[in-house]
Amino acid sequence: MGVSMDLVDFIRGLTTQIIAIVWVVFLITWVVGWALRGSPIPIHRIKRLGQSLIEDSVIAAFWLALGSTVFALITFIASNISQPFPPPPTPTPQP
């Protein structure tokens, strides 16, 4: 029990750290994206890269913000589906 709880705590800690890192990375990506997009370099590919970086970071931020909600929703729906089964129909003898 102790070992598995330690493991769970470790995983939770890891998750928390990663989420903190993700926010930082999101900010960096967003900033880099806007920087590339708004840069005075007249190369269309770089502008497009900046654009896609902005999009990706926003989508990532969206999923990150929604993460706990999505999990809670799945747990709620799946738990409601996996209710105990009704008893199976028993064949009644035909007259």
Partner: peptide, 24 residues
Amino acid sequence: DYLVIAYNLALLSYSLGVLLLASP
């Protein structure tokens, strides 16, 4: 017990996924 670990692992891989998605 294993399910708790599995749930936390799922959260971990979710955050990892978001990290990869958000990476520049």
